[in-house]
Nucleic acid binder design. Structure first.
Lengths: 370, 370
DNA sequence: CAATTCTAGTCAGGAGTCTTGCCCAGAAAG
DNA sequence: CTTTCTGGGCAAGACTCCTGACTAGAATTG
């Protein structure tokens, strides 16, 4: 039965929720301001504030309305009590960033820990612990993690796909973080988080788009009806095995294109980004550019066919490079169905930004649910 | 502001909604049965029934509880009043089927109209009018339409994609039906409806799967997080231009495979299903089977990469054929990432079944919203 | 400096909704 | 005929929200 049972308690909790959300957004408000902000009557708001104060969720800040504002009676400012923080963590092969956000959306602390390449799982786990313990302020009520590898939707663990780049290795993020977090740990891959951040930049306008990330690993995030689609195992957008156009017009998997072009790191599953960038800008670059353009636009054709995005956003160390972007856009424009291709808006820590915002929303919901 | 404002009116409408939903599901109930069914107290239910009767949404059927049931006082049975019907329509090149469903989920009428091939738009429109006027009983409060062509998500009109099969032609379903329906007309393509029906067969178990339809036209529906994903323009799953493996290992678009195999209807954009089935079962079938298996499994690889389904369902006149299905499953099993491939469960009018169920849900919501 | 004006917060009254508990009517069972 | 049992209704109580009036206190105004 979908709709909630009607009861007076429902009403009361709805009132409290409105008040709490208003305080999260506006930091500090008087009872009167709360009433106009929420549209609820003054006496009801007063009662709610009394309840929430008693429950320890709201405190009288002691501040009074400044004289300058009006001439009437001074009001008391109320604010959210200390309700704990949420952790937002980004795990990449280069290093780890951990941040704490409070219910107002402020980042209260931050820690960075570098990792030596190639990353070994034990090293990553140790760095993760260090970053989180350094960053933590007060009780962390939940954690949201971005990881630069495919993530199993159910267990939150990294998944190695055959022959596909695997940057971090076997790492059970949930297990590592559990001792440091007093609540659920959510893990998803970095491209999905970056796409969520991109969506929030274009709030309400972009409901359906795709975000293609081209770096040492390749991935694609699909936003449909305003939400990231993860699929059954969380492996939506793992495009390494997508069939596309190879260097001589042959149908091969995307990851194989980089073998044929000799652009993978020897002894590793990852793509050699530096060499790739040198190859598309240096002498005799035309052939490489042509091959990459055809291969990637074959992927974009698949994205258009199976997700029908409004636009396609391309990001990542080499995908975001102007030369590569132009090459891809040009090759893609020749296909029968094409959409606007553009560079990602967010370039600095896009996946952390996405994880941070989700951490905030989850923290707020957790506070409201007592 | 997401959560509804707390008010007493909210409570009342919630109570009415519970009562109405119980009556939709159970056809006829006494006040006491309504109370136990909804979990709401007897006086409250009584009051709600009084309100709803006054509003004309509920009627006293005049029936009394039969003596056999217990020994207590006789109760009065209440039931939903006549609140109109919903139209469910399936438009295919062969013909049109229109049905009326009432709020209990009963199909109260049905009409079929054949169309001569090839279908001309005016002929289809005329057949549509005939089917709907024949089937309609009472006021149709809304219509849900399945159409065997790509459908624009915003306008509900058919969309012709370059070089892709286009079976029904330019047809503005919404405009044709508007005079016959007293409410909104919803249009989507037949594969999406079939997939919805398949989802409802596996209620709650299948949240993420793909439905690949292979017939005169080809399409694919993606169910993610329990919902059909349509994309920005409603063209999700139009796989004709997906890059896949051609007959000699060349990377070509799916639709071109049928050109190379000589399996398209001359002078038309559609696939010649009869000739295709003959080619895969007759003598020298091995080469054709091999080509089809590779081409389709390339499409499935794309579906897996971009949607990560739990299973892939294959249906349609030639896709559902055992020989074809086996061929595809075999070719697909050789790829690095593969999931279970199975035939569609529903084979008789699957898209109409999906449209019918959606029509029912929409009708119920419309009734509850007064 | 006193009167006026204005505002945050509270109080009182009233309307509305839900629930529990009790009672009644009436049919079947004993 | 009495007992048992069930659907339905009534009354009382608890609770929530709202409107409107009131109070306290500060700034402005004359």
């Amino acid at each position: 039965m979908d709709p909630a049972k009607p009861s007076l308690e429902l009403l009361r909790s709805l009132t409290d929720e409105h008040v709490l959300r208003a305080l999260m957004q506006h930091r500090r408000l008087t009872r009167a301001e709360l009433a106009t902000e929420t549209g609820i009557s003054k006496p009801t708001v007063g009662e709610s504030v009394r309840r929430l104060t008693e429950a320890g969720l709201v405190v009288d800040t002691g501040e009074r309305t400044p004289g300058g504002r009006g001439r009437g009676r001074v009001g008391s400012y109320y604010a959210l009590a200390d309700v704990g923080v949420a952790l937002a963590v980004a795990i990449a092969p280069e290093g780890i960033v951990a941040e704490c956000v409070d219910a107002h959306g402020d980042t209260v602390s931050r820690a960075e820990v570098k990792i030596g390449e190639p990353a070994r799982p034990e090293e990553v786990a140790a760095a993760l612990r260090t970053a989180v313990t350094t960053a933590r302020r007060g009780t962390a009520r939940l954690a949201v993690v971005s990881a630069a590898d495919p993530v199993d939707r159910v267990t939150g663990r990294m998944v190695q796909l055959p022959d596909a780049p695997f940057l971090l290795g076997e790492l059970d993020t949930v297990e590592v973080l559990a001792p440091h977090v007093d609540g659920p740990v959510t893990v998803d891959n970095d491209v999905n988080w970056a796409a969520r951040a991109e969506r929030d930049v274009h709030k309400g306008q972009w409901d359906d788009f795709a975000y293609v990330f081209l770096g040492a690993g390749m991935g694609c995030a699909i936003v449909s009806d305003g939400e990231i689609r993860r699929g059954h195992g969380g492996l939506t957008g793992e495009i390494a095995h997508l069939v596309t156009v190879g260097p001589r017009g042959k149908a091969i998997r995307l990851i194989e294109v980089f073998d044929e072009l000799g652009l993978r790191l020897p002894g590793s599953t990852a793509i050699d980004v530096d060499r790739l960038l040198a190859a598309v800008t240096g002498p005799r670059a035309a052939a490489t550019r042509d091959a990459l353009g055809k291969a990637v636009s074959g992927v974009l054709a698949a994205v258009v066919a199976l997700a029908d995005p409004e636009t396609i956003v391309i990001g990542g160390p080499w995908g975001g490079h102007p030369v590569v972007l132009d090459t891809i856009a040009e090759a893609f424009a020749g296909l029968p169905r094409h959409v606007l291709v553009r560079a990602a808006e967010l370039t600095v820590e896009p996946s952390l930004a996405g994880a941070r915002l989700d951490a905030l929303n989850r923290l707020r919901s957790a506070v409201i649910a007592r």
